[in-house]
């Protein structure tokens, strides 16, 4: 896909996701991690390069594209403050429909994956999205090396990257991710022995 069509595809995807994910959940973290899952789990060709940070898989280009979408009035971004800090709320902008139309061909092609992402993750909190995407990142890295992980090992590695979560919580997420068929490096035998 050439750069111009890729931009249109990304803009359309953003407009689509932001119009479908419940407003209470839809912020920058949700958008970032949805792009991650769509690309890395479902193979949607977004052209991003995600690497790991303490806040999960991240590519600054997603936020750069979000800024473009805001500039085009396709998305409205508002900072939301609370007692713990802040987040961002994303809503459709006045040109949201136009942007989606520009990339309609892309949305049609990947409709199943988009539906899956919204259903699978749409109601999750940002912190859970960070944790789950981190765990899938660890899993995919291992799978890329041909490594087989147990759920325990996946839990330990994820906890190294997200130490503020309790181990029991991460372990429960690992089992859940396995049951949702989101893990490639954890085989049935390794999962059953956990």
């Amino acid at each position: 896909m050439d750069w111009r069509n890729l931009q249109k595809a990304r803009m359309a995807l953003f407009a689509e996701l932001i119009s479908r994910v419940p407003q209470a959940s839809m912020g920058r973290t949700m958008l970032m991690k949805l792009c991650y899952f769509l690309q890395e789990v479902r193979g949607v060709p977004l052209g991003y390069r995600f690497t790991i940070y303490s806040y999960g898989p991240f590519d600054s280009e997603v936020l750069s594209d979000l800024n473009t979408a805001v500039g085009l009035d396709g998305v409205k971004s508002t900072v939301v403050y609370n007692s713990a800090g802040y987040g961002y709320r994303l809503e459709p902008g006045p040109m949201s429909a136009a942007i989606r139309d520009d990339g309609e061909w892309f949305l049609r092609q990947h409709q199943d994956s988009i539906d899956w992402a919204v259903e699978e993750f749409g109601d999750k909190a940002a912190s859970e999205m960070e944790l789950e995407s981190t765990m899938v990142f660890v899993d995919r890295e291992a799978a890329g090396r041909g490594e087989i992980l147990s759920l325990d090992l996946l839990t330990d590695r994820a906890r190294n990257l997200k130490p503020h979560f309790q181990r029991e919580h991460i372990a429960a997420r690992a089992k859940d991710l396995y049951s949702r068929r989101l893990l490639k490096s954890v085989k049935r035998e390794a999962a059953l022995s956990a």
Binding site: Y53, S54, Y55, A84, Y86, G87, E130, K162, H164
Partner: peptide, 10 residues
């Protein structure tokens, strides 16, 4: 610092 609820350090 922590930037939000249940968020790690950055």
């Amino acid at each position: 610092l922590r930037s939000g609820e249940n968020s790690g350090l950055r």
